[in-house]
Every structure is written in C-alpha cells, then in structure tokens.
C-alpha cells in the first residue's frame, strides 16, 4: 500500500504540474487528499504492522496522519478560494498544487517512518517542498523569507542528523544500531548516557526549527507570515506536528534510561523560553499572521512543558495539539 500511495503521489503531483486549467488542477489536489484519507484508514487497519522494514503506523503517528489528511483536505479547498480571490495565474496554481501534494506526502512519511534516518529524510523533504510553497508570491519579501527558511532549516536539520549519528557513538559496545525506533529503545539502557544527552540536545535544536520553538523559531515565523494563509495554517499545525513527533520519538526512545529527568529539564527550559520569547514578541507585533505564528510558538512551548510533566502530560500534550491545530487553522484561514 505504501508503494501504491507513493505512486499515486507522484502521478497526482505530475498531473497537477502539467494540467494548467485551474479548476481541474484544484480537483486533482482535492482528490489526492481524499486518497490520503483512505490511505490513513488503511494504515489504521494495519496498525503496528511493519511495512517495507522501515514503515510502521503506530497510534501516535496515525493520529497525526489523520490530522494531516483532514486539514490537508480543507486547506486544498481554501486554497482554491484564495487563488480565485487573488486571481493567481495558472502557472502559480499548478506549481503550488503540485508541490503541495509532495509536501503532504512528505509529512505522511514523517508520521509513518520507523527509522530515524528515513524520518530525517522526510523532514528535509518538507523543507524543500515548503520552500516552494513559501515562495508563492515571488516578490522580494517572499524571497527573503524563503532563503532564511531553507538555509536555517537545512543547517538545523543537518545538526539533527549529527544528533542521529551521535546515537552510533552512544551505542558503541552494544549490538549494532540499525536506527529503528524499537531497537534504539531496546538498546538505550545500555548506551552511554553522556552521548545520549549530546544526541538529544542536537536533535532538539535541529528539529526546533520545524516545531517552531526556541532556539530556531525565527525563520518559522517569517515563513508562516509570507506564505499564503492556507499554507501558513498548515505550517502552524501539521509542520509543528512533524517537529514535535521527531523530538518525541527520540524522547520516547531515551525515556527508559537514566537521562529521563535531564531530558525533562531540557524540555522545560525550551518550553518556558519559547513561551517567554513568544509572549515578548506578541506584545510588539501588529501583523495578524505574525501574531498567530507567535501564538503557535507559545502553544508549542506549552506542549513541550506537558511532555516534560510525564505520562499524564502526554495525553494533555496530545489533546492540546489536536485542539490547537483546528483552531489555528480556522484563525489563519479567516
């Protein structure tokens, strides 16, 4: 099914690129998002089943995938209205829709990956496709936003990759590490705690750009501001999810080790700093989209705080994510 979904994605993206009639083009995207919902349902029926050795739909991934599918569907409908209102050219719409399909597929990949390396590759995929979506208006401001976004994201995600490699150093002396979530979790207790800490710090810093939290939040705000409103809404919701999930996967893998308390402290510091920074900026900012972007950052900080509170906090974090995404999407589009 994964292979079929990948093929459907490529065909839909190709069609959206070459079909220049706007109504048909929007139809292709909406149809794809419906396929994505069906795919989500299929994966739900095959929960915890390992596919192609590196894909495993677990409960958390499936909840996030459902959010992507549903919000992706509504965003596609809203983009149609947006494009009509702004009288976008056929070329702009087809490029946007074509890349939008790839963006959704990359996000789905992040949620379904069972391998840290593959998840990293999909996250980098969201950066590349996200860049084209941000550069929608093709003016000076959009160019500034996209350059900063791609550059900072690339550097940050490279640091996250270094964090994944440090796992190898932490795992020296144990059995060979294949970077699968389950095997890392099983081996984590035998790993070197100092290197696990280094790995977690790099990963948190690297993926903070996707979650839009301290320290790499700036470019995320610009990206949400300069992209079309429906895309800004998605960046504030499902892209935040991707960053959160990436951080949470590592947190969950290391949580059975002696560094759990230390990780909680790091998450609390990151969460509190994110809330403080966003609150400070929220007082100054007048632009409505930027206010929403900083509000998302504040919520992301709260989500990290919830995770740091332990198991009861996980449920709170999950509920917060789900409600925040629906409301944020509505505000952005309105």
């Amino acid at each position: 099914m994964i292979v079929l979904f990948a093929i459907v994605t490529l065909i839909a993206s190709g069609l959206a690129f070459f079909v220049r009639k706007q109504e048909i083009n929007h139809g292709i995207v909406i149809l794809f998002t419906l396929c994505s919902i069906a795919f989500n349902f299929y994966e739900y029926l095959h929960i915890d089943e390992v596919q192609l050795n590196m894909i495993k739909p677990d409960a958390l991934g499936l909840i996030f995938l459902a959010i992507i599918s549903v919000l992706g569907f509504f965003t596609a409908i809203h983009y149609r209205t947006y494009a009509n209102k702004k009288k976008e050219t056929d070329r702009t719409v087809s490029i946007h829709n074509s890349v939008y399909i790839l963006f959704l597929a990359a996000l789905a990949g992040v949620n379904l990956s069972n391998n840290f390396g593959l998840m990293w590759a999909f996250i980098e995929g969201t950066t590349l496709t996200g860049a084209v979506l941000i550069y929608h208006d093709r003016d000076k401001l959009a160019l500034e936003a996209v350059w900063k976004y791609v550059f900072v994201c690339s550097v940050s995600i490279t640091l996250a990759f270094a964090g994944i490699l440090f796992l190898s150093v932490a795992a020296q002396g144990t059995n060979s590490v294949d970077f699968q979530f389950d095997s890392i979790r099983a081996l984590a207790e035998q790993m070197n705690p100092t290197w696990l800490k280094v790995s977690f710090l790099f990963i948190l810093t690297g993926f903070s750009v996707k979650m839009g939290v301290f320290p790499m939040f700036n470019v995320d705000i610009d990206a949400k501001d300069m992209s079309p409103s429906p895309i800004g809404a998605l960046f504030s919701s499902v892209l935040l999810n991707a960053g959160f999930l990436a951080i949470f996967r590592f947190y969950a893998a290391f949580s059975g080790t002696s560094i759990q308390g230390w990780m909680h402290n790091v998450l609390i510091i990151t969460g509190v700093l994110s809330i403080l920074f966003s609150a400070a900026y929220l007082i100054r900012v007048k632009n409505y989209k930027r206010i929403l972007a900083y509000s998302s950052m504040e919520h992301a900080g709260l989500i990290l705080l919830a995770v740091a509170m332990g198991k009861a906090g996980y449920v709170a974090a999950l509920l917060h994510i789900i409600f925040h995404h629906w409301l944020n999407q509505a505000f952005f589009i309105k």
Binding site: G117, L128, D178
Partner: peptide, 23 residues
C-alpha cells in the same frame, strides 16, 4: 562512527542534501 544506515535511507539522505543545495 561507522554508521550503518540502510541503503535506501542513505540514498534518500543523499537526494535530500543534493536537492537542498540545488534549491
């Protein structure tokens, strides 16, 4: 560190890095 990622993942990483530099 003698990282042993699966070949597919290595290829995906290479493609991502290549694309990011191109972009």
């Amino acid at each position: 560190v003698g990282s042993n990622m699966p070949m597919l993942v290595n290829a995906a990483i290479l493609l991502d890095i290549f694309s990011s530099v191109l972009v």
